[in-house]
């Protein structure tokens, strides 16, 4: 197993020709549409968060490596990707220190302490997001409405709207007064709904994700099995309610998580079978947390939990350990 090389070997067929830097630049490119969309949707506050997050991540990596007298690797763009992903998981209008604290945690504690790129076992941006979410819950769930929804009202901060997920949750449990017609599919696709800044515009995310798959930067297995599992679970539990299922797929952080965060090379399995299991696990946990647990969105926790399981999935899907799965039920 060439664990040290995972950062630059996403799948066997592209191994030789690519460098980490090019891959990371591709990811940044794929993330760009969602970022632009967020600035259009939420205005200047979104741009502030993105800038603060990216600058903090790059700076933290640079300073840490200088301080530790290591080779400075900020040129590989991986800190930029972490910064973007972290920013996309923060609601627009959050105070600036939120992305700063998150960025430092992501880069120093989750990534660099374990040896830098390719060595971390949990996704830095997601872990930082979870830390922020648990520590300053009130700030992290204060989702502003988009500029278009808030039109005619006083300002961005004046309304913190209910997310489509909350409404869908009510439909799912059959609460009174909840209806699918309150959640427009078109709004979900365009991102005209409340949520953290980078997850709302689904068109941009799907576009970026498909681009990455086509360019073979990421493997299709994880996003497909993850989204597929969520779809199947909602279809089964809602009595094949297509409208609800489609809306669930297009709300919350599922698209952002499935394409950009679950596919992180060093925190997802290396075997094809392992990737399918990983994606399905993410989807199943996401469904369970979203539908039943106290946190409104399960995407980050689902992926983090599967990150933790990744070494074992790798171990037990690698051919030479075949059959050992049964030992541990």
């Amino acid at each position: 197993m060439q664990i040290k090389n995972i950062a630059i070997t996403p799948s066997p067929h592209v191994r030789s020709s690519v460098s980490t830097r090019r891959l990371m630049q591709e990811v940044c490119l794929a993330l760009a549409p969602a970022g632009i969309a967020s600035v259009i949707l939420f205005g200047a506050p979104a741009a502030v968060i993105i800038a603060a997050s990216v600058i903090t991540c790059v700076l933290a990596e640079y300073l840490y490596q200088r301080l530790m007298k290591q080779k400075v690797t900020v040129g590989d763009w991986s800190a930029v990707v972490t910064g973007l992903l972290l920013a996309y998981n923060i609601p627009a209008g959050a105070p600036v220190w939120i992305p700063i604290v998150g960025g430092i945690f992501a880069i120093i504690i989750v990534k660099q302490l374990f040896g830098g790129i390719g060595s971390n076992f949990m996704n830095p941006a997601l872990t930082a997001r979870a830390v922020l979410f648990v520590s300053w819950n009130a700030i992290m769930i204060k989702y502003p409405q988009t500029v278009f929804l808030a039109k005619g009202r006083v300002g961005l901060d004046a309304v913190s709207g209910a997310t489509p997920l909350a409404e869908l949750g009510k439909v799912f449990t059959g609460a009174e007064g909840a209806s699918l017609s309150n959640v427009s599919l078109l709004d979900l696709l365009l991102g005209n709904c409340a949520g953290v800044l980078g997850e709302t515009c689904k068109i941009a995310l799907i576009l970026g994700g498909v681009y990455l798959i086509v360019r073979k930067v990421i493997d299709w297995r994880i996003p497909v099995s993850m989204i597929g599992t969520v779809a199947v679970m909602y279809l089964l539990t809602s009595g094949f309610n297509l409208g609800l299922t489609a809306r669930e797929l297009l709300s919350g952080g599922l698209m952002l998580g499935a394409f950009f965060m679950a596919t992180d090379y060093c925190t997802s399995p290396q075997t094809n079978k392992g990737r399918l299991i990983f994606g399905a696990g993410c989807g199943l946990l996401l469904f369970v947390i979203r539908a039943y647990a106290s946190y409104p969105e399960g995407c980050s926790f689902a992926i983090l939990f599967m990150n933790v399981c990744t070494p074992l999935i790798d171990r037990w899907t690698a051919p030479r350990y075949f059959g050992e799965v049964r030992k541990h039920g």
Binding site: M122, V131, V134, L285, A293, Y295, F301, L304, F305, N307
Partner: peptide, 9 residues
């Protein structure tokens, strides 16, 4: 941190 998501399940 990963285990915290199950709160309230």
């Amino acid at each position: 941190i990963a285990f915290m998501g199950f709160g309230g399940l």
